[in-house]
Amino acid sequence: MLNIYRKELFNYFWSPIAYIVVPVFLLISGYFFSFSLYYLKLATMSNAFHNMSILLLLLVPVITMRLIAEEKNSGTLELLFSMPVSIGSLLFGKFLAAVTLLVIMLAGSLIFIVPLIVHAQPDFGPILTGYLGIFLIGTCYISIGLFVSSLTENQIVAALGTTAILILFWFIRYIGNFEALQFINLPFEFISTSTHQGDFVRGLINFSSVVYLLSLSALFYGLAWLRVHLLRTG
């Protein structure tokens, strides 16, 4: 697993992905944070977390698009199948490398706390829960991206497919607002990732939110495992 993890991490930092995704994430979320702090005079991170979650809808697919699709396209997945590497190690190594990049992005955003401390006395509780929430949502996005990447050889298709699913999960809570769709009796509010993100930003660690996000991660990770297993068994 460690060898796959190292290889994936090497790939992120060899290719332009890490050098584009991390600065773009920090610059855009930094801009919105500064706007909120200096223009709206809000000495909290809540807006920043909300904007970060939306940014991740667009950036996580860039991180995950190549995870399996690139290996399939270049034929290296066949090579990995012929080696003493289990599917579990293969997927977890890749998943962990993507999570590492997410952690680096989030760690970079810790710098936002400095002006908060300088200009006000921030409440660290919601900041900590906000980071926990965005981390859980990010890992959820990564699992979804990992699964979609296993469905295709084309990285662009993988990225677009992941974005579509992530956007669906983000906005699905609003489906209930459409009268025509009200006959569908599903807990859209609960299914939506944006609902759970709101709880964390408010400083709440809602047990059901944690379980839901972990379950969603596990579900897509499991689907990715099943897909790769089917590819291996042919």
């Binding site: 290889k7 066949e78 003493p84």
Partner: peptide, 26 residues
């Protein structure tokens, strides 16, 4: 195993690639 199209990581140097494969082979 050498498939018909050599399975290579284009972005790696030859030596890095071979070391990676060696580690993956255990």
């Amino acid at each position: 195993y050498l498939p018909e199209v050599p399975p290579l990581y284009e972005y790696m140097k030859v030596i890095t690639y071979l070391k990676t494969i060696a580690r993956l082979k255990g």
